[in-house]
Nucleic acid binder design. Structure first.
Length: 421
DNA sequence: CTTCCACAGGAAGGTCTGGCGG
DNA sequence: CCGCCAGACCTTCCTGTGGAAG
């Protein structure tokens, strides 16, 4: 830089490498990381182990359903036990297959069977293509493959409620009676307690032989989980004493979601690192909370339908205007609707009714983009008071990404009358 | 106390899309 | 391919209402 020459990339990276990193192993803090130790899930691990144990004697364990909110350790427990089971099976000479499938990605009957079948390809060289075969044929092929293997297979279906239709589940439960040498059992994981209510009764009875519920963690338990991970993820002494309790408390308020707690701490540490701070502090946690929330809101706004975007645009314009005038930053349904109406004409959209617009506003409220509450102004009627949420300051730019809204960037509001109110 | 504003928000019905069984 | 149905999305019409002004 002193010589005026362009900075070489090498120097840039050198600078990065010279910076002391707070992390020892960043991966440990990511949601995808599978820990060896799961604090406060000992009971669940034990119970599930008891259910699965028959697999080691070559018998099929009961099918089981596992419920629990996000971040309560369902997947982690199942994966951990799957690993153990495979290991133990090898030691004992009883082969146990554990196949983990996420039904959010593998969501149709065909793809489910295809994926299971392809787990066996290394031994028998047949391969099932990702499309082209009739589903029945995949099914019978699968049966042949499994019978040749003569082993117990445990199929884990994560997010099983995302699976389309129940034929897929039905055929999996039916398969046992058509196998001679092999056995399968199914573990279904879901965060929807009412999921089984809508299932075919036959599937329901055979699949729900056992069930387990994972309760959310409380703040104390979350602290233990965080401590356990921090040991491996961050350097010693880089985390202030009050940081972990804070992360735990904030996440416990939500749902007791361990994933959130870890995210919070990881983002906080990343922010600290970026500002070359020697330690992660409370301050960073607060910043992290804002960042996570901002990222969430940004994503929500990007994927909003255009009419909702336009309504939001009107809200943002009114907010900007009232701030310029130094008045309080709230507005009413009527004001928003009037401006929205104007904007509609400007961009040649067909304008929705006030009734519908009111619904869109309350949707924005539920998504946490704006805050809306019903108030009465006495003689001046009853209305909803709207405010943009604290994290939604710079949403205008996101809306401008959309072609339709670009033209509005230099659009000025006509009416000045309400400034005097 | 009554009045009455400016909406809230429920009910019912219309239109369109997309999946599904025959 | 067609008819059917469910559900998303809107409209029309409606009744209900908190509380400052009168």
């Amino acid at each position: 830089m002193k010589t005026g020459k362009p900075v070489l990339t090498k120097d840039l990276f050198d600078q990065y490498l010279e910076n002391e990193s707070l992390f020892v192993n960043r991966e440990v803090m990511r949601p995808s990381y599978m820990p060896e130790l799961l604090p406060h899930r000992e009971k669940e691990i034990n119970d599930l182990a008891n259910v699965l144990a028959p697999a080691l004697r070559g018998e099929a364990p009961s099918n089981i359903f596992i419920y629990g909110k996000t971040g309560t350790g369902k997947t982690a427990v199942v994966k951990l036990l799957g690993k153990e089971l495979r290991k133990k099976g090898e030691q004992k000479g009883k082969k146990v297959n554990v196949i983990y499938l996420n039904c959010e990605i593998i969501d149709t009957h065909y793809r489910l069977l295809q994926n299971i079948a392809n787990q066996f390809i290394n031994e028998w060289n047949d391969h099932v293509p990702f499309t082209g075969w009739p589903t029945d044929e995949v099914y019978s092929k699968l049966k042949i493959m499994m019978d040749k293997e003569k082993s117990v297979t445990i199929i884990v279906l994560d997010e099983v409620d995302k699976l389309q239709g129940d034929e897929a589940l039905y055929s999996l439960t039916r398969i046992n009676s058509e196998l001679t040498n092999a056995r399968i059992s199914v573990i279904g994981i879901s965060n929807d307690l009412k999921f089984t209510e809508f299932l075919d009764p036959r599937v329901k009875s055979s699949l729900g032989e056992e069930s387990m519920i994972f309760d959310p963690y409380d703040a104390k338990q979350l602290q233990d989980i965080l401590h356990e991970r921090v040991k491996f993820a961050l350097k010693k002494g880089t985390v202030d004493d009050d940081v972990i309790p804070l992360c735990a408390a904030l996440s416990a308020q939500e749902h007791g979601d361990a994933r959130r707690a870890l995210d919070l701490l990881r983002v906080a540490a990343e922010l600290a690192e970026r500002t070359h701070a020697p330690k992660v502090t409370r301050h960073h946690v607060r910043q992290a909370q804002n960042k996570i929330e901002l990222d969430r809101v940004t994503e929500v706004v990007r994927t909003l339908p255009n009419q909702s975007k336009l309504v939001l645009y009107a809200v943002l314009m009114l907010d900007k205007q009232s701030k310029k005038a130094g008045t309080t930053q709230t507005m009413t349904t009527g004001e928003v609707y009037d401006l929205y109406h104007e904007l509609c004409k400007k961009v040649r959209y067909n304008c929705l009714t006030q009734r519908r617009t009111a619904d869109l506003i309350s949707e924005l409220d539920m998504l946490g983009v704006v805050t809306a509450r019903v108030i009465s102004k006495g003689r001046h009627g009853r209305t909803t008071e709207i405010q943009i949420s604290s994290t939604s300051k710079d949403l205008m730019e996101i809306l401008h990404e959309d072609e339709v809204f670009k033209d509005l960037a230099n659009y000025k509001m006509k009416e000045q009358a309400r400034l005097t109110i």
